[in-house]
Computed example of a mutant assay.
Amino acid sequence: MENHFHTIEPCEKLKEYVACYYFIKSDDQDFTSKHYSFPHTYNALSIYKDSSFDSKPSNFSVRQSLNPNYQIFVQVKKQAPLMVNISGKVNRVTILFKDFGINHFINEPLSKIMGYEKDQFNSWKDDPHFPEFMVSLFSIDDEQEKGRIIDKFLLQRFAPIPLSYLESAVALLCNFEKNLSIEKIAAQFNVSLRSFNRNFKDVLGVSPVEYRRIAQFRYSIENKFFQTQFKRLTDIGYESHFYDQSYFNKIYHKLTGSNPKTFFKSIERIGDDKLIFQFIKK
């Protein structure tokens, strides 16, 4: 399946908001693949052509549909691995938005549109450019041209919103060395804990506690892959500011379903290391 994943970067104007676009395509009606995706602070918005779905909390199945359709989902920020099971022809485009990125392209709180367990993403359905965008996106196979089509549509949608104190709050949450409590972070911005949690979830789709857990997990992955001085897993846990090895193992088991050693042996890095999946071999 990994050979069917291809990534490209957005245009310069969008790089502040979008990590990459990636594409999954197979014209083989007997095609099957399974992979696990893992919690991320980024938001994956996926567009499928001619597909039907079966969604469960830990499993998302995609099948070829004989009825022409376009369907869009923004994946829930899960606190556990998600099995993605694909069968039949598949044609999928995914926009991987950075932490705050998607908020500048939608008209409602992120917490209300995150799908797979909810309704489809409909925030763009009333956009006059949307029908042409969908047709154009799937009428060609050239991925660079697909990227330009997405660039154009997103730039038309772009409506920056004020993020108030939330960007600074995320920076404090991700300072794992200081490890400030959620209460202290809220107090620094003179907001109640209740308001802080509500505002945070509206924009980022998860609570501050859940976000910190995912961010620390992703930080440890960065240390493993890109900090060459850290070789042993005990070093990775320490430098990623996990309390101890037991806690390090506990968080990894919760977010990946396995311990760190097993996780790092089983995953594959795709698209200049922007994507990390665990493919289930046949």
Rank of each mutant, 00 (worst) to 15 (best):
E143Y: 08
E108S: 12
I102S: 00
P81R: 06
R157H: 11
Q120F: 14
Y165P: 08
D119H: 15
S111I: 09
V62G: 06
N67K: 15
Q64R: 14
E145W: 05
R148M: 07
I161H: 08
M83D: 12
L96R: 03
F130N: 04
N175A: 06
S123L: 07
E117C: 13
Q144Y: 15
I149Q: 01
L193T: 13
K118G: 10
F158A: 09
Y165A: 08
E143W: 06
S168K: 09
N122V: 15
P81H: 05
I86H: 01
D141F: 08
F97T: 02
K152S: 11
E143N: 08
L96T: 01
N179T: 03
S192V: 14
V90W: 02
S164D: 11
D127V: 11
F73S: 02
Q79M: 08
L166A: 07
F176E: 00
Q144K: 15
G115P: 06
V93N: 00
N59I: 15
S164Q: 14
D141I: 05
K184G: 07
D141A: 10
F189A: 06
K112Q: 15
T94H: 01
F153D: 00
K89F: 08
I95Y: 02
R92S: 06
S164N: 15
E177W: 10
P109R: 03
L163Y: 12
F138R: 00
V76H: 05
L193G: 05
R194P: 07
I72Y: 00
Y70R: 03
Q71L: 11
F176Y: 09
C174Q: 12
K146M: 03
L137I: 01
I150M: 01
A159N: 13
E183H: 10
R92L: 07
P162C: 10
D141P: 03
Y165N: 06
S87H: 09
L82Q: 10
A159T: 14
F60N: 05
F73E: 04
